[in-house]
Amino acid sequence: MSIMPRVAIIILNWNGWTDTVQCIRSVHQLSNADYDIVLVDNRSTDRSIENIRRFCEGTDEAEPADDTPIHLFELSEGEADRCRPDLSTYHQLDPRRRLILIKNNENYGYARGNNIGIRFALDILTSEYILILNNDVILNDREVLNKLVES
C-alpha cells in the first residue's frame, strides 16, 4: 500500500461564510487521510470569521459542526507569510478536526488571495499537491483527492 501524498486544499472566502462552511463540510467527507484545509479570508466585512469560528466550535445553531469541534488555527497574513507557526498540535489532529485560517489585511482579489494560501501550503505545510476550491464548491465524490493524485 503506497502512502498518499499530502494535499493542501485552498479555499478563499470573502463575505461568503455560509457557502464556505458547506464547502468545508464536503471536504471533511473525503476518504483521503492526508489533506490540509487552508482557508484564506480576504478581509470579509460580513462577520465571516466570527461565524466560521462559531461553526468550528459547534456553537452555531444554523451551521453546527458534525461530531466534535474543529480546532481552528488562526493566523494573520503577516504570521502566515513571515514566521514559522508552531503546528505540532495541528499535525496530531485528524484532518476532519482541524482548519487553518489565514486572515488577510485587505481584499486582494482572487489570484493574490489564493497565492497567499498556496505559498503557506508549500512553504510551511510542505504540501505536494494544491487543490484550489471556490468556496461554493460541494465535493460529492469521497475519492476525488485519490483520483487527482493518481492521475
Rank of each mutant, 00 (worst) to 15 (best):
M1L: 14
M1P: 15
M4T: 15
P5M: 05
V7Q: 07
A8K: 00
I11H: 09
N13V: 14
N13C: 14
W14A: 12
T18C: 10
T18L: 12
D19Y: 15
T20I: 06
T20V: 14
V21T: 11
I24V: 14
I24Q: 03
I24P: 04
S26T: 11
S26N: 10
S26C: 09
H28R: 13
H28F: 10
H28A: 09
Q29E: 15
Q29W: 10
L30P: 07
L30I: 11
L30T: 05
S31C: 08
N32V: 07
A33C: 12
Y35H: 07
D36A: 06
D36W: 00
I37G: 00
V38C: 09
V38K: 01
V38R: 00
L39V: 07
V40S: 05
N42T: 01
N42H: 06
T45H: 10
D46R: 07
S48I: 04
I49D: 14
N51L: 08
R54P: 07
F55S: 00
G58T: 07
T59S: 14
T59G: 07
E61M: 09
A62M: 12
A62D: 15
A62N: 14
P64Y: 01
P64Q: 06
A65E: 11
D66I: 09
P69F: 03
P69D: 08
H71E: 15
H71R: 13
L72G: 12
E74A: 11
L75H: 04
L75R: 04
S76P: 13
E79G: 12
D81Q: 15
C83L: 10
C83W: 05
C83V: 12
C83E: 14
C83P: 05
R84N: 14
D86A: 09
D86V: 10
L87F: 13
T89P: 05
T89H: 12
T89K: 10
R96C: 11
R98C: 07
I100L: 12
I100P: 09
L101K: 02
L101E: 00
I102F: 02
K103A: 08
N104A: 11
Y108H: 08
Y108M: 05
A111L: 03
R112A: 06
G113A: 04
I116W: 01
G117I: 00
R119L: 02
F120R: 00
A121F: 00
L122I: 02
I124F: 00
I124D: 03
L125K: 01
L125Q: 01
L125S: 01
T126N: 08
E128N: 05
E128V: 00
I130P: 01
L131E: 00
L131G: 00
I132H: 04
I132T: 05
I132A: 02
N135H: 11
D136Y: 06
V137E: 05
V137A: 03
R142S: 13
R142L: 11
R142M: 10
E143W: 10
E143I: 05
V144A: 08
L145I: 12
L145M: 06
S151F: 13
S151D: 15
S151K: 13
